[in-house]
Structures are given as structure tokens and as C-alpha cells.
Simulated scan of single mutants.
Amino acid sequence: MLNLLSILIGIISLVIVIPATIPLLGWANWFALPLIVIGVVIGQLSGSGRAGRNFCIVVGLIAIVRLSLGGGIF
């Protein structure tokens, strides 16, 4: 159950991160990062599978790379 919740949080985060790849919308990644961290923690607490945790980690890496390319703001 926690794994599904983690996947759901990852999908919500991905919906925020995808438009944030557009120039001048990189600040939206700062809203997605706390959600991603919560998804990773919930995915880690899940005993059965690790798919939710891994999905949130991948979304987080996309957000971090985009933030680093934009200098943290753009």
C-alpha cells in the first residue's frame, strides 16, 4: 500500500517537474522537491517493493539536473 502511495506522489511530482523544464519555469521544481522527498521516504517504508522509491528518485534527479542547469532559479 505504501508503495502505491509513493508511486502516486511520484506521478504528482512528475506532473510538476515536466512543465518546469520550460525556460523561466524552473522555480516550480522547488515545489516538487519536498514532494519527491516525501515519496522517497514513504517508498523506503514500504516493505514489499521498491518501485515507488526508485521512481521518485528518478523524478528527483530530473528536477535536480534541471535546477542545476538553470542556476537554481530559472
Rank of each mutant, 00 (worst) to 15 (best):
M1F: 01
N3C: 02
L5P: 04
S6I: 00
S6R: 01
I7N: 05
L8E: 11
L8M: 11
I9H: 03
I9Y: 04
G10M: 00
G10A: 04
G10S: 09
G10D: 02
I11W: 02
I11C: 03
I11P: 00
I12C: 09
I12M: 06
L14I: 00
L14A: 11
V15N: 04
V15G: 05
I16A: 09
I16R: 03
V17M: 03
V17C: 06
I18M: 03
T21A: 14
T21G: 08
T21Y: 14
T21C: 11
P23H: 11
P23K: 13
L24P: 04
G26S: 12
G26R: 05
W27M: 09
A28P: 01
A28I: 15
N29A: 13
W30N: 10
W30Q: 06
W30E: 06
W30P: 15
F31M: 07
F31C: 06
F31L: 12
A32G: 08
L33D: 06
P34M: 10
P34V: 10
P34D: 11
L35K: 10
L35I: 15
L35V: 12
L35F: 07
I36G: 04
I36W: 05
I36K: 07
V37C: 14
I38Y: 08
G39F: 09
G39Y: 09
V40D: 00
V41T: 04
V41I: 13
I42A: 04
I42R: 01
G43F: 00
G43A: 09
G43T: 02
L45T: 09
L45V: 06
S46P: 01
G47Q: 14
G47R: 15
S48R: 05
S48C: 02
G49V: 06
G49I: 07
R50H: 13
R50C: 04
R50D: 10
A51H: 12
R53T: 08
R53D: 04
N54P: 07
F55I: 02
F55K: 00
F55A: 03
C56N: 13
C56D: 05
C56E: 05
I57D: 03
I57M: 12
I57Y: 12
V58K: 08
V58W: 15
V58P: 12
V59S: 07
G60N: 03
G60Q: 03
L61H: 07
L61V: 14
L61E: 12
L61F: 14
I62Y: 01
I62R: 01
A63C: 04
A63P: 01
I64P: 10
I64D: 05
I64N: 03
V65S: 10
V65E: 04
V65T: 12
L67V: 06
L69I: 14
L69G: 08
L69A: 11
G70W: 00
G70K: 09
G71P: 06
G72E: 08
G72W: 04
G72R: 06
I73C: 12
F74D: 15
